[in-house]
């Protein structure tokens, strides 16, 4: 297949997703689909977003190719990277047609997801417990605060020594950062809950267990989900760092390996892929959060007028 054909497919896919979203929006605002699309395309938001991308790509093209500035002239240009990415027969062995590309993506995604899920399963209960029980907070908070600032990469040697093999070590390092972000945001969430909700629940007859379920957990939910989004991002960046040091596959490994093999377009392909996957995973977390916190969504859009 010709790269231009793929490019066309990609553009068509983006347009289809865009059109579908516009249709949803049109239904929401009770406009016709055509009017909604016109409003969006001529809206400030869309034009500014487009301008942002255009400025970025123009900067890349101008510095690297057009003027070939001294520090930039070793880098590949945007067009070169795009063509390599979409090529059925890539010069450096990585494009959307090669099996290896997906293997790297799969490995990284598997590691990041495992680490993220572990961090959520352990971090949310720990944060809730810290916020709920004064005593437990005093036990654990200083320890957490002392361990948290240690950069993830500093854990790599210990992780490799203690854990069997490189794989668990990379996951562990990824997990750590996500775990602290989740724990602290959950704790912050519990602390942010207005005292009067606790009081109201106790007035109405709730015991300590009910407080945990009916006030602490739902009350902390907005912060928990903010934390999970940050934790997802953090998982990706520490994962890539971990993969650069100790892994045989994964996008971090790919980027570092391409650097040593002087396959510069592959570095860019790896980076852009990370950007897309990172953005998509955050979007998934965000949409789950929205589903779980319908009350908040409605609160933000609902009427706050008095009457």
């Amino acid at each position: 297949m010709n790269p231009y054909f793929v490019l066309g497919l990609l553009v068509a896919a983006i347009l289809a997703v865009g059109a579908w979203q516009q249709k949803k929006k049109a239904a929401l605002y009770e406009l016709s689909w055509g009017v909604q699309i016109f409003k969006t395309l001529t809206g400030r938001h869309f034009l500014l977003q487009l301008a942002g991308f255009a400025v970025f790509i123009a900067f890349w093209q101008l510095t690297v190719k057009t003027f070939s500035l001294p520090w930039f002239n070793r880098l590949p240009g945007p067009w070169e990277c795009l063509m390599e990415w979409l090529s059925p027969d890539p010069a450096y062995g990585i494009s959307i047609y090669t099996e290896d590309y997906y293997k790297h993506i799969l490995f990284s995604t598997y590691r990041a997801t495992t680490a993220f899920l572990l961090a959520t399963l352990l971090g949310v209960p720990l944060g809730l417990l810290m916020g709920w029980s004064r005593k437990f907070y005093q036990y654990s908070f200083p320890l957490v605060e002392l361990i948290r600032p240690i950069p993830p990469l500093a854990w790599v040697p210990l992780a490799i020594l203690v854990l069997p093999g490189d794989e668990p070590a990379v996951i562990f390092v990824t997990f750590l950062v996500a775990f602290f972000v989740t724990t602290l945001n959950t704790l912050l969430g519990v602390e942010s809950i207005d005292e009067s909700y606790f009081r109201a629940a106790r007035c109405l007859g709730a015991d300590k267990q009910r407080l945990l379920l009916d006030v602490v957990l739902p009350g902390a939910m907005p912060f928990i989900f903010t934390g999970l989004q940050i934790s997802m991002g953090a998982a990706w960046f520490s994962l890539v760092a971990g993969e650069m040091i100790a892994a045989q596959f994964g996008l971090g490994f790919l980027i570092w390996d391409s650097y040593s093999l002087i396959q510069y377009p592959v570095i860019i392909i790896g980076m852009i892929t990370l950007g897309i996957i990172g953005w998509a995973s955050s979007a998934v977390v965000r949409s789950i959060g929205r589903k779980l916190m319908a009350w908040r969504e409605r609160e933000l859009y609902g009427s706050g007028q008095s009457g």
Binding site: D194, S196, A200, R202, W295
Partner: peptide
């Protein structure tokens, strides 16, 4: 606290998530 003397709060304390 107990349900025989229920408080209605200054800023309102309906659970926003219910």
């Amino acid at each position: 606290p107990g349900p025989e003397r229920v408080v209605v709060f200054q800023q309102g304390a309906l659970f926003p998530w219910k």
